[in-house]
């Protein structure tokens, strides 16, 4: 056989082999993508940013390894407080490893917590700019986390982290509408509970968020009663909020009597409700609490000078204070 004949046959065989395997590989590829086992194609922007060598390594089937290297680089940027670089690096990391919860949570945490705190304390910038940078960092952290949730809708931890961020007293003042923020937090916690994998505290956290959203009191009361039915959930915050919501539902309620029922003794009721009264930064509702405290103090013969109602409340200590100078 002549060389050109042999090469021709080889080429034809190669093409025929390709034609037979093409549909098999395509169907397997589709199956893997459908099952979330194949990562989406790497963005061209990411290929450019990570450089040619890393790009080649990533395209050589080592995406998660490149993501690990980039995580180390992001940590260096974090130590140097280069927030834009941290953010850009995490954008690349999640493009390489979109199913890794840790990267979404860490990227969001760097922005919404570390960068935001940095702007609160950075005295080199004018207060207005600091405030806007602080707000933007929190918004970016939230958006990043929400993108992580869209990529991993069944991950309870990402949903719970979003709920936590939106109910954090140092974060929610960044958002214009507190009720919408608390509602979004409650929804995130609800979705986390719906995954079936979330621990019990997530259900309570959902209630704590819902109790703060104006207009959702009935729903919150129903949830509080359901949670209270399980003795493991009877934590001081839940008991106090159950009292508040009952008082909101029925303003004529004898809150002191209910407080003793819920907390078992007047002393415990006074201590827990005093704590609740003082937690002003978290914006928990306090319907009926003042009345209950007054009645309990009278019951326990607390002198007026020691009354919690006569003590000054904790200052709000929010953005207005942080950025006043």
């Amino acid at each position: 056989m002549k060389a050109w004949q042999r090469n021709g046959i080889l080429l034809a065989a190669l093409l025929a082999f390709g034609a037979t395997r093409l549909p098999l590989e395509k169907s397997l590829g589709d199956e893997l993508r459908k099952g979330g086992l194949a990562p989406p194609p790497l963005e061209i922007g990411t290929r450019d940013k990570i450089g040619q060598t890393s790009s080649a390594v990533a395209l050589g089937g080592l995406r998660t390894l490149v993501a690990t290297f980039l995580n180390l680089r992001a940590f260096s940027f974090f130590q140097e407080q280069r927030w834009d670089d941290v953010s850009d690096t995490f954008e690349m990391i999640v493009d390489l490893a979109p199913r890794t919860r840790y990267y979404w949570e860490t990227g969001s945490w760097h922005s919404a917590y570390n960068a935001a705190s940095y702007y609160i304390n950075n005295s080199n910038m004018p207060s207005l700019r600091r405030k806007e940078a602080w707000r933007a960092a929190i918004y970016r952290g939230r958006a990043f986390l929400e993108r992580g949730i869209r990529n991993n809708p069944s991950d309870w931890s990402l949903l719970s982290t979003l709920g936590f961020m939106l109910t954090d007293a140092n974060k929610f003042p960044a958002f214009r509408d507190p009720d919408a923020t608390f509602t979004a937090a409650a929804d995130a916690y609800q979705k986390a509970v719906d995954t079936g994998n979330a621990p019990a505290f997530v259900n309570r956290a959902q209630f704590y968020a819902l109790a703060r959203a104006k207009g959702r009191e009935k729903e919150a009361l129903a949830l509080a009663r359901a949670l209270y039915a399980d003795p493991k959930n009877r934590l001081p915050t839940l008991r106090a909020l159950l009292l508040v919501l009952e008082a909101h539902e029925n303003p004529a309620l004898d809150t002191a009597k209910l407080a003793v029922e819920l907390f078992e003794t007047p002393e415990r009721a006074l201590e827990a409700l005093s704590g609740h009264w003082q937690r002003t930064r978290e914006r928990f509702p306090v319907d009926g609490v003042a009345g209950a405290l007054g009645a309990l103090e009278k019951m326990l013969a607390v002198p007026p000078e020691k009354s919690i109602l006569n003590k000054p409340l904790q200052l709000p200590n929010g953005p207005d204070q942080w950025f006043s100078k």
Binding site: G18, E25, A38, P39, G61
Partner: peptide
């Protein structure tokens, strides 16, 4: 048709995750 497809083997990344 001529080149092999290695993208399906990237399932390894999903296992790492």
């Amino acid at each position: 048709l001529v080149l092999p497809d290695f993208q399906n083997f990237n399932v390894i990344d999903a296992v790492i995750e």
